[in-house]
Design a protein around this nucleic acid. Structure first.
Lengths: 243, 243
DNA sequence: CGCGGTCTTGATAACGCTCAATGATTGTGG
DNA sequence: CCACAATCATTGAGCGTTATCAAGACCGCG
């Protein structure tokens, strides 16, 4: 109780604890006991990225693990035509980096801060070290990676579905699951993405997204409030469009 | 030397060794030493699937790990419109199954034998057991899973690329890498897939694939021999289409 | 040799992309 | 705090590409 208060309100203590808060947010480190956890947190480096700032580029040497402490990060590739294809939107508690042990590969995608982001960074060497000393953690990592595979498989299914209404619904339902806020009968959705980003997620153009969202508004499924908020009014109908 | 001969030619010995051959083909088991390897192989169950036969369906309880000893397996989902979307083509030495420890999930895709397939099967409980006793193996599994993520990310990039010629090229280049046979200046390619399967891999219709392959033949890039063989005559041009 | 399945080819039409202009929202400096 | 700029989103018209539908050729197998 007292400890918690110290952590929350004592600026000095907070500076000392450095990355601890960060590490405890990341599920793969949850298997670590106190001494190991300290070892990790001592090595963590913090950095802030401003909205719109690039965190790394495709082709960069991947020698760090990036743990998101706050904010959202967009992971994407470029298609042949130069359009972005978004692979993941990562939030607080998630991480990105080359997870294969030993080798330092190159990033195969780009990462950009969608909002101001507090990032904790751990060098790959340090991470490998922790992993070697705590083989149990590999199972935890495996679990996370496995979830990521599932997301990609779903995205593939979505991209290969011709019906665009269905793709938009799928995206919205995902967002609702991840950060939708129930308000009475409705669900409020604060979009982390611009129209263009949404388009780049499901592989269409920005204009098409505009039109589809609009037609969904006319059908009474949702209500567009400004550019970054959507109120879902008929969740069932939305779900019926998806499946 | 003598041992090898025994394994290869002695039918009796081969029956006794059961799944050993299978396990040794699968990279994740390569970290295992003799006693553990034996433990695994003793538990392995063999099964043969005929060409076209379903191995499992989406929604089935995933309580087994499937190790491919021979043949190719198609892993796919259905889109909303009922079309197949192929996620992976798995070959000898690869495996499929729920890799997340402890829980027995449901398969989120279907698996079908593209040829006659020799399959080795290991129950999930047995696999979990091995994994717990050999935490090192988790790193190996992680590596494999990681490669699979890369494949999916590439597939996504391909699916979101509008230019279909580029998608076809990408698929062909992948096939060449996986099972192309150089013949003089050319590369021969025995397709494991029908035209429809190819179409379902890159998310177009069978007619479109026909037309594209034909136009590529007219451009002198390749030569179609029957339905299951392609001779690549101008690899450079093919590569230039892709990037 | 003939039959079933697979593949090719052609004509048509639908759908989303492109381009272009207008409208809304956000951010900034006077 | 307002005005203006800049960014972002919407709307419309026309075009291009591919899906669709339909018919025919080809391959491989009994």
């Amino acid at each position: 109780m007292n400890n918690l208060q110290n952590l929350e309100f004592n600026e000095e203590a907070c500076k000392k604890c450095k990355g601890r808060y960060c590490a405890s947010k990341v599920s793969i480190f949850s298997v670590l006991e106190e001494p190991q956890l300290k070892e990790v947190t001592d090595k963590i480096d913090r950095k802030i990225y401003k909205k719109g700032q690039m965190i790394f580029f495709e082709g960069d040497i991947s020698d760090k693990l990036y743990l998101i402490n706050k904010g959202k990060v967009k992971i994407f590739k470029y298609t042949k035509e130069g359009k972005e294809q978004i692979l993941y939107i990562l939030s607080e508690g998630e991480f990105v980096g080359d997870l294969s042990l030993l080798k330092k590969g190159e990033f195969k995608f780009n990462a950009e801060a969608l909002e101001d982001v507090n990032m904790c960074q751990l060098t790959k060497d340090d991470f490998d070290d922790v992993l070697r000393k705590n083989p149990d953690m590999a199972l935890k990592v495996l679990q996370v990676v496995y979830e990521r595979i599932s997301k990609l498989e779903t995205l593939i299914q979505s991209l290969s579905t011709k019906d665009i209404e269905s793709r938009v619904s799928g995206l919205l339902l995902n967002f609702i699951k991840d950060f939708g806020v129930p308000k009475g009968n409705n669900v409020e959705l604060d979009l982390p993405l611009s129209r263009e980003d949404i388009a780049n997620y499901i592989g269409v153009t920005r204009e098409t997204i505009s039109r589809k969202l609009n037609s969904m508004q006319e059908e009474g499924i949702l209500k567009l409030v400004g550019n970054k908020k959507i109120i879902i009014q008929d969740l069932e109908k939305l779900e019926s469009l998806y499946e």
